[in-house]
Nucleic acid binder design. Structure first.
Length: 204
DNA sequence: GAATCGATGATCT
DNA sequence: GATCATCGATTCA
């Protein structure tokens, strides 16, 4: 497996969202601990043409990053409590981002459980990353990660922080499914949510 | 599985 | 100051 090339994220947001299914999101947290999971659920959010997107009413301090360079993390706080991880897509000047909604945890299950403050239980892996807020907590991602670029593992030697965010290509599911996006009030009928329907780790 | 509710920072008027 | 918001946990059946 190899890190997805930058060009992968320069394409149309909907394509990126669909093609991310099956790839491996790997994260090294501020504490140096690794966690990783297979992406099984994503959603595409566009620019001015998408009323449900944070970029739907143009550039604001918050949405600015969605207009910027692709392959960068866009992290925001929702409901005042939960973090959501997006990857900026499209060419610069073209707003778009893919929300990572669910993972099948792959590495660092114990770390995830500890961060999420849940004890070992049956089907634990199904409950660690099956939702955008939950997976951020499990991966240790918060607002400090906003603007973090996807990188290969090589970091500058003098870099102080331990943060690494990378997505390796992986086999896409043989079947995938498009459905309406979750938890929004505008443009609710666009089928811009993508899932691997065979996964047992989906949200909702 | 469905319905309900708590939680609170950011954005907008 | 009011409203909104890419949700999660709990309760009920």
């Amino acid at each position: 497996m190899a890190p997805l090339p930058a060009e992968f994220f320069t394409r149309a947001t909907v394509e990126v969202a669909r093609d991310l299914l099956g790839s491996l999101l790997r994260v090294r947290g501020d504490d140096g601990r690794w966690t990783a999971g297979r992406i099984v659920e994503t959603e595409a959010y566009g620019g001015e043409d998408d009323p449900a997107s944070h970029a739907g009413r143009g550039r604001t301090p918050r949405s600015e990053i969605m207009f910027g360079a692709p392959g960068v993390a866009y992290v925001y706080l929702i409901y005042g409590v939960h973090h959501c991880l997006n990857i900026v897509t499209g060419a610069e000047g073209q707003a778009g981002a893919v929300l990572i909604r669910a993972l099948e945890p792959f590495t660092g299950l114990a770390t995830m459980a500890q961060r999420r403050n849940v004890a070992a239980e049956t089907r634990l892996h199904q409950n660690l990353c099956n939702g955008p807020g939950k997976l951020c907590q499990a991966l240790g991602i918060d607002l400090a990660w906003n603007g973090t670029p996807l990188t290969s593992e090589r970091q500058p030697k003098n870099s102080n922080n331990q943060r690494i965010l990378t997505i390796d290509s992986g086999p896409q599911p043989v079947v995938w499914q498009a459905s309406p996006r979750i938890g929004i009030t505008r443009a609710t009928n666009r089928p811009h949510r993508f899932t691997d329907p065979q996964s047992t780790c989906l949200s909702r």
